[in-house]
Amino acid sequence: MINRLKKFLNDLFSGSEKDDISIGIYGPPNAGKSTLANHISQDLAGEEMSDISEVPHETRAVEKKEKVTIESDDGRTLDLNLLDMPGISTNVDFKDFTEHGIEEDEAKGRAKEATKGIVEAIKYLDDVDACLVIFDSTDDPYTQVNVTIIGNLEAKDIPILVLANKTDLEDADPSRVRDAFPQHPVLEISAKEGENIDKLYQEIVERLG
């Protein structure tokens, strides 16, 4: 399937005058964006790209795996940029970090970085070619922030694949993701356990093309 994904990306690239394509991974904090980004990066480039933590806003700047060069059978190449976005939220309270045992000064610094990261992630909405929007299946996905992310991508006609993540957890309920965004196909995955990642590559090939 990875070979098929590489072929698809190459085909997508061949119809464009651009010399690279960018796929953004969006979603709220702690939805599993970095876990998924690492999985894809490992598959395509042989190495991980982001740090992972239970503390919210661990990714506070756009993490890029740039120019993953993919070569087709006929020798042509394309550069893929995989962008792991900071989780978008409407508020960042330094107390959310101190609750995880982080000292107040460092917590305030992290909060400041997180606000900059969110602004950066919003600005990138203009620059991505396709998006994976990932939600935690144990949380309620119908929030204004999530509606805003999806709505912006729809308004810009950017291809979207919605992912209901963390299906390995007992209280996961992916149907809530489907109910929240009925206009989009939803794929159930566990980025942590690697469940349905092959299916994700297949969906990228079939739906984002």
């Binding site: 409407t90 919003i122 909405l125 509606v147 805003t148 999806i150 709505g151 912006n152 308004a155």
Partner: peptide, 8 residues
């Protein structure tokens, strides 16, 4: 959606 992202 664009206005909401401007608010954020």
């Amino acid at each position: 959606p664009e206005e909401k992202s401007s608010l954020i």
